[in-house]
Design a protein around this nucleic acid. Sequence first.
DNA 1: CGTTACCTGAAA
DNA 2: TTTCAGGTAACG
Length: 285
Amino acid sequence: VPELPEVETIRSDLAPLVAGRCITGVDVDPATLPLLAGTGVSLDALRSSLVGRTIRGLGRRGKYLLFELDDARTLVVHLRMTGRLLWRDGAAPVEPFERARLLLEDGHHLRWSDLRKFGTWRIMDDLAPLLARLGPEPIDHAFGLKAFAATLSGRAAPVKAVLLDQRRMAGLGNIYVDEALFQARVRPDTPGGQVPPAAVRRLHTACREVLEQGIANRGASFKDYVDGQGNPGSQHMYVQVFRRQGKPCYACGTLIERTVVGGRGTHFCPKCQPRPRRKGGSGAA
DNA sequence: CGTTACCTGAAA
DNA sequence: TTTCAGGTAACG
């Protein structure tokens, strides 16, 4: 249940282990294959794309992991809700909910575990169509306030929905969005276009900071997420609002509330994150 | 734009 | 037994 910090942690764990290694085999549970690789993709086709290829490097864009292959193609992996990629000795026991594995020349395996089978592996010749669907990285300092403000400007959708939309910016998910909105003191259901300018500035900074904190803490392990070695992160110990409904706000003591915004469970402090004043308050706070 | 479906297990 | 889950694509 990986968002940008969790995917980045896995990437940084696995990159030095897989770089320069040749793939010597691929196994996939037949019942999972059409969900994992796409309907109509045979195991033979997947093997012919991967076996014999050397992994040049491991990249990331948004929540996608990019295994760069030596034939200029890319194995694009998305973990969705419960996907895991685990670096294991070839003799290690089968993982819980293991659905696939990549065999590497040094005897290690990358084990793919995915309880809910939502995760995907796709071989892509050209990443352009994928990248075109993704907005900028919120942690990229080149993604400035002006561009950020433009994504919110004029939008009627709740600011939370805008921040979750991977086409506008890529990498935030439900945990970090709630945390960023708390840090910026913005109520999640505020229409994007009605977030006051000062709050837009705070939110721009908050999105970067919560993601960077998540990376520093190696991700949030509420339930399913583990890193590339199978170890949990610690970011869940430091969340301010996510899944803290009914508990006191660390800043003011008011009880955290839970609602649904954009179809997602949403957590906020009703006092620290007030509704913006609608009339006469359109100027900077 | 909001809602539904995809899949499975844990928790209520 | 029912509801819920950190994601996204496909609906209406």
